[in-house]
Design a protein around this nucleic acid. Structure first.
Lengths: 188, 188
DNA sequence: ACATCTCCATACGTCAGCGTATGTTGCGCG
DNA sequence: CGCGCAACATACGCTGACGTATGGAGATGT
């Protein structure tokens, strides 16, 4: 039994559980008692670690925003030299990192987007992430020799296509990777 | 005062109010008492017209599914002859019908998609709508002389791009129409 | 060893939302 | 004119979720 007996829960344990819940059932499913049950404890623990639920959600957003773009940018720039190769790498990896990462990876993103549609705090975080990602993709297109204007448009279309495919994949499983590759061919 | 005194509420009044609420605050915001307040009545009325909330939601989905594709298809095929023109028309009209139609138009769609991510009943409806729309767009590409395979791929990318732009527009206002036009140029 | 502090358990009051049961009102009609 | 039904209004009990308050167990320092 490699079971590590629960010595003491960290704030991160709660946050990870919350992202799982978020991905599975949406923002409204993030409830203190539900998370407590999943962590086999009680909400007394929750309210010891966090002031209240809104504060907790704010921490979720902070964590997500910090990791949502960084890890992908890192993976891309470290596995290919500047040029079209990086875009192909990007198209491949974004479609296969479902639910691996701590903060829920990409499987929680549709839920966060709906969250952003409803709550202002999440909306501003989402806007910053969208902008950062589009700027990054734009740079990749610029590195392929495109003008700033063309690169920007293609970055937006590339990203929009990804969002759409991600949204559809959340309901009915499809091969996002191959479609992203085809989209990229048309954009280059 | 052109105020028409509330003679008697119809089921459709409730449904329209619910789509407004859905677009504004998501599925979880569809609550009998909230809708009653918006219609300046009480939930006694709600439970007279409808058995319970789940049944009511099911009727919402039924209504939405019936109208979500039909009206757009009709508008496109009736305003242009077969060929690329129809795609341009489609790119234009889908981006400007925000919140006009009865069932919430397109402004409620991101919420319905999240709904579909969480509840099975909505997921099956959403899948059918997605399939119908993609099939329709595919046909438009076929009418432009494309092979079935190419047309299918382009229809998916066109639709995915639309979904992504729609999702982004729900958070931060952007010009969906111009971006859809540019996407279409690349797909033709 | 004993007091303290951390980390969690339990019990409580509150409130929103559900669904039911029953009271109330206004029109249609003989 | 008054009866009856459609279309609500109101009152109720119930559950789930919040946040608080207080109790308790286990490690820890001196």
């Amino acid at each position: 039994m490699p079971r590590k007996l629960p010595i003491s829960l960290t704030p991160n344990d709660w946050l990870r559980a919350a992202f799982v819940q978020l991905a599975a059932a949406g923002v409204q499913a993030i409830k203190a008692e539900v998370l407590a049950k999943q962590l086999k404890t009680t909400k007394g623990s929750f309210y010891w670690h966090f002031k209240d639920v809104p504060t907790f959600k704010a921490e979720m957003l902070k964590l997500w925003e910090a990791e949502a773009t960084r890890s992908i940018m890192l993976a891309v720039t470290s596995s290919a030299p500047p040029g079209p190769q990086r875009l192909h790498v990007l198209a491949r990896i974004v479609s296969q990192m479902n639910a691996e990462n701590d903060y829920g990876g990409l499987s929680a993103e549709p839920a966060i987007r709906e969250w952003a549609r409803v709550e202002l705090q999440a909306a501003t975080a989402m806007q910053r992430v969208d902008s950062a990602r589009i700027a990054f993709v734009k740079k990749l297109f610029v590195d392929c020799g495109m003008t700033a204007r063309d690169a920007r448009l293609r970055a937006e279309l590339f990203y929009s296509g990804f969002l759409g495919l991600q949204a559809m994949a959340a309901i009915k499983p499809i091969d996002v990777g191959i479609r992203m590759s085809e989209l990229l061919k048309l954009l280059l």
